[in-house]
Amino acid sequence: MTSIKLENVSLIYRLFEKLTLSAPDKRKGALGGNIGRSGRTQIVQALDNVSFELKAGDRLGLVGPNGAGKTTLLKVLYGIYQPSGGAIFIKGKVDALFNINIGFRPEATGRRNIVLRGLISGWTEAEIERKMEEIIEFSELGDFIDVPFKAYSQGMAARLAFSTATALDPEILLMDEWIGAGDASFQDKAKRRMDELAEKAGIIVLASHDAALIDSFCTRKLTLRNGRVESLTEIPEAASSSSEL
């Protein structure tokens, strides 16, 4: 049974002062949360005692101002960041839609890019073969699929990226903002695809600034502020209106 359980998860990291011969600068990138000081070292408390539990069928909306820790939490759940405290228990295959353009190469054809993206996503060659025609058909690229990616219009590139990135069989799906692509007609199709994807996934965690989207799509809402959980509330009758997205 798909599930996610976080117990007092914290993420603290040092703001590494890279060794450099140049004068000290102020270009210190923070993930969010509180920036503190421990001796001479600056530390960031990106997540602080975050606890919640999700079971199959849950759709969790992550909300909060910029720097609250939404994306950080998604990356912790995906395994990009290792928490510095607490425990995470995840049952189910986790897929993420953070940057749908990642791994696309301008010189390669659309078809080759599907293969590369599939390999990066951990698909087997058989899975890539199986999904290939479906992705091409969904992207509506036709003969352009064998043309280098750099020759695509912005819309075509977005359609290929979207079609490939969403050709998943997720048990747990993590999304940083809702993904849309292409022209108006493709947008409708993309919305339906996202709905199907959400239906297939046991659990969805969606970070967004769009309060209406969260209220209409999610069943629960987690509000983060400075890396801490401010509130975790149930959203009544959420899924019923998801098709209106």
Binding site: R105, E107, A108, R112, V115, L116, L119, I120, G122, E125
Partner: peptide, 19 residues
């Protein structure tokens, strides 16, 4: 175990440089 990924990316890298 992900040898197909780095093999494919390396070939693409070489190909891109001289395409």
């Amino acid at each position: 175990r992900l040898h197909r990924v780095w093999t494919a990316l390396a070939h693409e890298d070489i190909g891109d440089q001289h395409r």
